[in-house]
Design a protein around this nucleic acid. Structure first.
Lengths: 139, 139
DNA sequence: CTTGACCCTAAAGTATGGTTTAGGGTTTAT
DNA sequence: ATAAACCCTAAACCATACTTTAGGGTCAAG
C-alpha cells in the first residue's frame, strides 16, 4: 500500500487537513507513522476510516458515538446486537427531535393562519400569542 | 406595579438568575433600574418579556431572531407581514431539519432491518455499510 | 450582631465540531 | 537557489446558550 500525506487523505475524503488532525486528537483515527521530518504517513485504511466517520455523521452519530462504534468494530468479542442497539437508540433520539420540530411547526402554522399579514405589529396575532397572559394551545 | 428582584423574576419565569443577566448582556431585556446598593429592580413587564423569549425559543427561534422579533414588536412602523414572513421562514428551516432527520431515520431503519442482531461485529451489516467501498443506497 | 440567603461583576468553563492563526520547518518545481 | 506549496505544533477562535467560579457586598431573621 502506498503512503499518503495528510493532504492526500484530506483530498481523498473531502475533509480539511485540520479536521484530520482534530480527529486524531479526539482518538477517532490512530496516530499514523511519521517520516524523518515528522510528516504524518497514512495508509488507505486511514482514508477508509475517515469515510466511515463521515457516513456515520451523516446518519446523525456524534463523534463520541462514532468512537464507540469504531471500538466495537475493532473488538473481537463485541456482538452485532450491540451495534444494532446503538442504531435503534439513535432512531429513538431522531424520532424525539422530529416530534419536537413537528410540534413547533404545527404551532407556527396555527399562528400564521391567524395572521392576515396586514396592519401594524401592534395587532399581530403571532406576537400577541407569544406574550404573557395569552397562552394559546401551542402545545 | 411592584418591584421585583432578579431572583423574583427568575422564580416567576423559571429561568436561572445568571440567564437573566445573560439576556441583559445580549440585549434581549432592557437594563433595569437599580437600588442604591446596585441591585436590579424589575417590573412585571420584564417578567413578561422573559416569558415571551421562552415561548419564542420553544417555537425554534434563536436568541438573535427573538431580538429581531422584539424590536419589530416595539417598532411603530413595522408591519405584521414582516413577523409573518419571519415565522414562515422559520417553518421552512424546521422542514429542512425534519427532512434531514427523516432521511437519517430511513437509512438507519434499513440498516437495522438487514441486521439479525446476532453474531460477531465482523459480520455486522450496519458497520459494513459504513465502510468504504460498500456504499448502500443510504440516500 | 451574626449568619444565611441574596445580590454584584468579570471571566472562565461546558458541549459540539471544527477552523484559524502564529510561528516555523520541508519538499518540489523551475 | 528560491518560491510555492506542504507539513508541523499549540493555542485561540467561531457559533449557541448558558452555567459556574471567584471574590466581594447587602439584607432580613433570630
Amino acid at each position: 500500500m502506498k503512503a499518503l500525506t495528510v493532504g492526500d487523505v484530506a483530498r481523498k475524503t473531502g475533509v480539511n487537513v485540520a479536521t484530520l488532525r482534530y480527529y486524531e486528537r479526539r482518538g477517532l483515527i490512530p496516530r499514523p507513522a511519521r517520516t524523518a521530518s515528522n510528516y504524518r504517513i497514512y495508509t488507505e485504511d486511514a482514508a477508509r476510516r475517515v469515510l466511515f466517520i463521515k457516513r456515520a455523521q451523516a446518519l446523525g452519530f456524534s463523534l463520541e458515538e462514532i468512537k464507540d462504534l469504531l471500538s466495537l468494530k475493532a473488538s473481537p468479542v463485541a456482538r452485532c446486537g450491540e451495534v444494532r442497539e446503538i442504531a435503534a437508540e439513535k432512531i429513538r433520539t431522531i424520532d424525539d427531535k422530529v416530534d419536537a420540530l413537528e410540534a413547533m411547526r404545527v404551532a407556527l402554522s396555527k399562528l400564521i393562519a391567524e395572521c392576515a399579514g396586514e396592519g401594524p405589529v401592534s395587532d399581530c396575532p403571532i406576537l400577541e400569542s407569544l406574550e404573557a397572559g395569552k397562552p394559546r394551545d401551542l402545545h
